[in-house]
Design a protein around this nucleic acid. Sequence first.
RNA 1: CGGGUAAGACAGGCAAUCGCGCAGCGCAUUCGGCGCUGUGAGGAAAGUCCGGGCUCCGCAGGGCGAGGAUGCCGGAUAACGUCCGGCGUAGGUAACUAUAGGGAAAGUGCAACAGAAACAUACCGCCGCAUUUGCGGUAAGGGUGAAAUCGUGAGGUAAGAGCUCACGGGGAUGUAUGGUAACAUAUGUCUCGUGUAAACCCCAUCCGGAGCAAGACCAGAAAGGGCGUACGGCUUUGGCCGGGCAGUUGCCCGCUGCCGCCCGGAAGGUAGGUCGCUGGAGCAUGCCGGCAACGGUAUGUCGAGAUAGAUGAUUGUCAGAUACAGAACCCGGCUUAUGUCUUGCCCGGGUC
RNA 2: GCUCGAUUGGUCAAGUGGUCAAGACGCAGCCCUCUCACGGCUGAAUCAGGGGUUCGACUCCCCUAUCGAGUA
Length: 112
Amino acid sequence: MRKKEILRKKDDFQAIYKAGKSVPERYIVLFYRKNDLPYSRTAFLASKKVGNSIQRNRAKRLMKESYRLNAEKFLEGYDLIFIARNTINGKKQKDVEKSLLNAAKRGKVTGR
RNA sequence: CGGGUAAGACAGGCAAUCGCGCAGCGCAUUCGGCGCUGUGAGGAAAGUCCGGGCUCCGCAGGGCGAGGAUGCCGGAUAACGUCCGGCGUAGGUAACUAUAGGGAAAGUGCAACAGAAACAUACCGCCGCAUUUGCGGUAAGGGUGAAAUCGUGAGGUAAGAGCUCACGGGGAUGUAUGGUAACAUAUGUCUCGUGUAAACCCCAUCCGGAGCAAGACCAGAAAGGGCGUACGGCUUUGGCCGGGCAGUUGCCCGCUGCCGCCCGGAAGGUAGGUCGCUGGAGCAUGCCGGCAACGGUAUGUCGAGAUAGAUGAUUGUCAGAUACAGAACCCGGCUUAUGUCUUGCCCGGGUC
RNA sequence: GCUCGAUUGGUCAAGUGGUCAAGACGCAGCCCUCUCACGGCUGAAUCAGGGGUUCGACUCCCCUAUCGAGUA
């Protein structure tokens, strides 16, 4: 993942939370918004509710891996924020992947 | 075999596919990359409870305070509240464990309730004299309490009392022996005056403050102008004296800097990059000294450096891969969480 | 990351080491009333958890847990 594809600025986050849409799913919550860029930008978050730093790190890695494996299915030009819920603890990669794809489908950010 | 106790080790390995951070080399280039090689979290990385390094601030210097920490002895260490070896005390049948363990005879405070009385006293009682009530002596016995004039026996006495004696116990102090010392043992003299210092305090020792979001550099950045002589006085307009404010950790001395009003307009958004950033009280092995902590020496070796934050996913295999858990400037400890295994020792039972 | 603070009935909270820990709101029960409200009475706290000092701990000391604040 290239550096410019990582969401970093506080303003961007505020804009997505305010003007974007959200899709809650079993293990994650997805925020998304069109960004008028030729590529997509992403962020993977896990709050302290998820657990200690080990659990938060693992949640983010599972989400990243799931996104990476299915990156070609997503449409370009969106800002995406994936937020882990505390139900993600102890779940396997496949479960997270399924949940993430489900959320993307319901948000209509996947192609075809 | 069961129970206990102490010490130590490891924290998954290998293979396949996909993927990530950093460094080096090469290729492409121009703002993005591609390939190869190497390397890539812990025993607690955690809590942030102590001690250092490092950075900035303060510091001519002196005096007076205030606050905090530690507290048996000796040693180790850069240092420590840590560690090692001892001593005393307490617990345990034992192996062993715990120990903030100086001073209550410098002073102050507190000790609820109960009890007559809580640090200087006399309720019941006992005895003597008066004799209905009182006065005096006494601390054996009763009773209260966490704690009440050392315990037992004898002498003694009106009754009693370390008042005297014997044995025993505690404290202070002297001497001898052993030990570097704490202390132990023996003995002489005096003594029997509650506890509390994780209450104030006294004594001894140590401590400047903040913390890598410290701090430095780059880019960027507004610097200034006017009125006017404007804290007061003097004045040769350079300054001097006084005053005020700020800094110098609280105060004093001393030292340093500054001093009125108005206008203009920029930055300003918690926003960027680079450094600090990892070779160090480093790690491994051997030898020497030391009971040990540890120290010395020789050889070898370089083992993360991210910046929204890099170690993951899917399988196979090994008897099994399971717990607690993620570096964020770096070290030495402490404390807490936690899976498996090994060894020594102690107690109990059984068999030979 | 670093530096601090707090925790006492359901909620807000007082509390100098000393009797079963004040008070307010709320809750439950009873009384009052024809009924409700008001009013009156009563009840409910291992003082966040564990260990230590002390005769005795909400209070003093140490460790742990949870919650909160500040810091560019």
